[in-house]
């Protein structure tokens, strides 16, 4: 009895008590819905009646039907390209702000980087359609300058357009964690490397880059996982060959009225990105701890 009383007065009970409203909300609106999606993916639906006998048929369809296989592979590919392009764009920017901008100006630069993202997400993506379109900004200026006779058609309604637009949408989310990681790099370590005779490039490769790797990993995860579920960008700038898995998921839930198959597709996509992310994190751990680092 006394022990229970002491426990109730202790930190553990107070912490759990404080967090319980948030936790209960998350359980009700995240855990239970996710469990229901998993359950649904093992059921079948015929028009409006739901058959609750356990079956893996939805997964068989999701994993064997060429159309789904193809969509999944394409989504994964686009996500990977987007992640690579985003990191490639973000790292130099984060490096510039962290190492070249005077400390007092850093906050202003971060602000500058985020301003464009306070426009409506939909309108921002639509504007890329305007920029890349047949009569768009790029074609308009190129023909105006007399560099081309016919507008270029390969820049809109394809996967390149999707990759470019998504990279634009996600780049600040990649800059921030890399910037934070670079800020944490002890400047005296870099001076020590210089003092020990490393050249600029070797110093970067052997000290700065490995030490900022946690930020790069965070950025990769933050970009890679959500982009595979992006719906708007493929619809607006992707054209028929740029559609991704979430467009199919939406189709199953709404028009095709096959929620179980949609659930199976959603869970399969999640499983694949999680798996790829884990491999990525694991490879990086090896790289950071390995003797070459």
């Amino acid at each position: 009895m006394k022990r229970v009383q002491r426990w109730l007065r202790g930190e553990g009970a107070q912490g759990l008590f404080l967090i319980s409203p948030t936790l209960v909300f998350a359980v009700l609106l995240l855990a239970i819905p996710l469990i229901m999606v998993v359950a649904l993916s093992f059921w079948t639906q015929d028009y409006l009646t739901l058959d609750r006998t356990f079956t893996t048929a939805n997964y068989q369809t999701a994993w064997t039907e060429p159309m789904y296989q193809y969509l999944m592979a394409r989504s994964l590919k686009i996500s990977m390209f987007v992640t690579a392009l985003t990191i490639f764009l973000a790292y130099p920017v984060a490096y510039f702000i962290s190492f070249r901008v005077p400390p007092k100006r850093k906050a202003m630069w971060i602000f500058l980087i985020t301003i464009p993202f306070w426009t409506s997400y939909l309108i921002r993506i639509f504007l890329w359609k305007v920029i890349l379109g047949y009569n768009g900004v790029i074609n308009g200026s190129l023909t105006g300058l007399g560099l081309i006779d016919q507008p270029l058609s390969f820049i809109l309604y394809n996967q390149n357009a999707v990759v470019l637009t998504l990279a634009h949408a996600w780049v600040p989310f990649a800059i921030l964690p890399i910037f934070v990681a670079l800020e944490k790099v002890d400047r005296s370590l870099i001076e020590a490397a210089e003092d020990l005779g490393d050249s600029k490039l070797r110093r970067f490769l052997r000290v700065t880059l490995p030490l900022s790797m946690p930020g790069v990993i965070a950025a990769t995860i933050i970009v890679f996982i959500p982009t595979i579920g992006d719906y708007v960008t493929p619809r607006l700038v992707g054209g028929p060959n740029g559609l991704m898995i979430s467009n199919m998921i939406e189709l199953q839930f709404k028009k095709a009225n096959d929620a179980p198959l949609g659930s199976a597709l959603a869970i399969s996509a999640m499983a694949i990105v999680t798996f790829v992310s884990l491999i990525f994190i694991w490879l990086n751990r090896k790289y950071i701890r390995g003797p070459g680092a």
């Binding site: 819905p33 996710l34 595979i228 579920g229 839930f253």
Partner: peptide, 12 residues
Amino acid sequence: LPEIIIGVSLLV
């Protein structure tokens, strides 16, 4: 989590 997953699961 991709927002579509949250949207779908709440819808379900």
